[in-house]
Design a protein around this nucleic acid. Sequence first.
DNA 1: CACTTCCGCTAATGCGTATTAGCGATCGGG
DNA 2: CCCGATCGCTAATACGCATTAGCGGAAGTG
Lengths: 348, 348
Amino acid sequence: MTPPPRRVTQRDIARMAGVSQATVSLVLNNRTDADVRIAPETRDRVLQVIAETGYAADPAARRLASGFNRIIGVFTYEPAFPSGSRDFFHPFLLGIEEYAERVGCDLLLFTSAPVVDGRRRIFHQDNRLRLADGCILLGREIDGAELLRLNRDGFPYVAVGRRDDAGGPVPYVGADYASAVHRLAERAVELGHRRLTYVGMGTSAESSHDRRSGFHAGATGADSARQINAAAETADATVDDLRADGSTVAFVEDFATAVALEASALRKGLTVPGDLSVVTLGDPTVPVPTDITFTGFRIPREEMGRQAVEVLTGVIDGSAGGLQQRLLPCELVEGDTLGVPGSAADRR
Amino acid sequence: MTPPPRRVTQRDIARMAGVSQATVSLVLNNRTDADVRIAPETRDRVLQVIAETGYAADPAARRLASGFNRIIGVFTYEPAFPSGSRDFFHPFLLGIEEYAERVGCDLLLFTSAPVVDGRRRIFHQDNRLRLADGCILLGREIDGAELLRLNRDGFPYVAVGRRDDAGGPVPYVGADYASAVHRLAERAVELGHRRLTYVGMGTSAESSHDRRSGFHAGATGADSARQINAAAETADATVDDLRADGSTVAFVEDFATAVALEASALRKGLTVPGDLSVVTLGDPTVPVPTDITFTGFRIPREEMGRQAVEVLTGVIDGSAGGLQQRLLPCELVEGDTLGVPGSAADRR
DNA sequence: CACTTCCGCTAATGCGTATTAGCGATCGGG
DNA sequence: CCCGATCGCTAATACGCATTAGCGGAAGTG
């Protein structure tokens, strides 16, 4: 590890322009305060030399001295590769990158975070968190202890997805699952469904909680709104369970489980949505082959990414005020799997 | 912009452990040279305090003092969003991230690079290039002038894709297009094709050059091996041109053009590959809907990303030797669009 | 002409770390 | 018992930049 070759510094520029290093810095930062004056000709001379040499300030030194960087950290919780769930995060990253580009920020991906107990950790011996002005947290389940630490340290951050308080309010940009599921449940009741079942994944994440509460809020007009847990592998048993309960519609948290449910129902001679309606509660997290358009909603992932950066910049420069928590509306998807219960109408 | 709150420093640790700041640094860096000795109990005491406080070194200061960071820059040439070509780059990034994670490096995405003349620029006033130990260049066409500058500055970098010299050899990890196209052309000749046409995009990128030279090298046994340029929009005219020339096989650089050619041929009553064989020379750069499996080859994009990081780390620590240029083999794809010329056999 | 004001700039310092020369203490050998 | 070697550590400095107090000179004021 031989140190990298010496590069042009402000001292060099200063010498060449016949001024002091401080002057170079002042010119570079366009300081035009009342108590800092540089004669136009001096300024031009310095700028001239800068242009000739192609000088660019050392970002590390700059950060050390000023405390800022225009770098946004991105921390992805979900562990390593190759993981299909990556595709789920891609739109978030797209939005993040787009907005970062717009505001002239670079992105620092904390890929070096070690995996402990099957989960990446922000805080490890060598974390380079403080190289960034703030960071964006991405992941289905975010460690509450780490949020707490971020809050305690006063490190600017924003979570993508709503998060419960952790030693203080957590800045986030989330999707309004509660409202989306609420509307879907209401619609099911309007269509005549009397017994509704929520098919969850058994996770305790905030996103699951919001969906469930939206479900119950929207299903107040029904005779029964219960909740079970199931996975794609147990689809057959789940369909039996639904029939036994008399449920005519399933609100399914996991997309793959919804696909499996529909397939199982068909195998059992049922029609969808005639005998059983199936509503999905979010975009697929892993690619699932299907040519059915499920009724459900769309998570505005790209927009969430964009706004996460927007909120973060607000948190960093302290201008955010109270607007550090945003819930974005989800667009409902008019699919082919929610219909009038008991109707013979098969899906097209 | 109020400066961020003061955080724990080595001085704090030193005070708490009753040692000097230098000692903390030495312990932290596990220095065990002959001329640097720390008593085990002192070391433990320092480590104890570090663990209690959760201290992590300031990466900016560290970089400033040592010159290294364990951060890898990633520069993407292709301009902004939302661009479908992004999907083409995704596998590269996947490989890059995977290997970076393995070697404990973070990734710095230079999203702040401004677009000038429709192309992103590495070197701009505020580039944070030097925050990284080195960088990876990604893009269909990379600016030779910028490569030159990187070489001149002695800044470690690696291009993804073969590049011609630019004031010295350019370190790269590329795909061996020449060899892949060579083999495909040979196979076409073996199958009985006597007149071959290379359908290019009219670009001067190294990747195009390599394909063309592979084509001509592999087609030495043919009666004619010519070269034209065409786009998807002019597919009909191109098919006519091919027929007029008597060519029975087209080697098509651009995937979308290949799809259009096949469709046009069918419309004109020709069979593929019976009347006209179509060979594609690379993965789609934009999503093109088709259910045909074209004969061609696969670019090992993920592996290229991985090896790019590997080569870069070698360049950075100077251990790379002469192995700074790698061409990875492409796997041939046995598709349905290359057959015996004149055979009535339609594609399945 | 003395005195204040303002202009244009610089010297000095700090940011937090890595590195090295070298200091005092202890130890071993003769 | 003295001297050199070794051990364990620290003081000092550099890295490149941003920031601020303040300096010398010119201009303005009475």
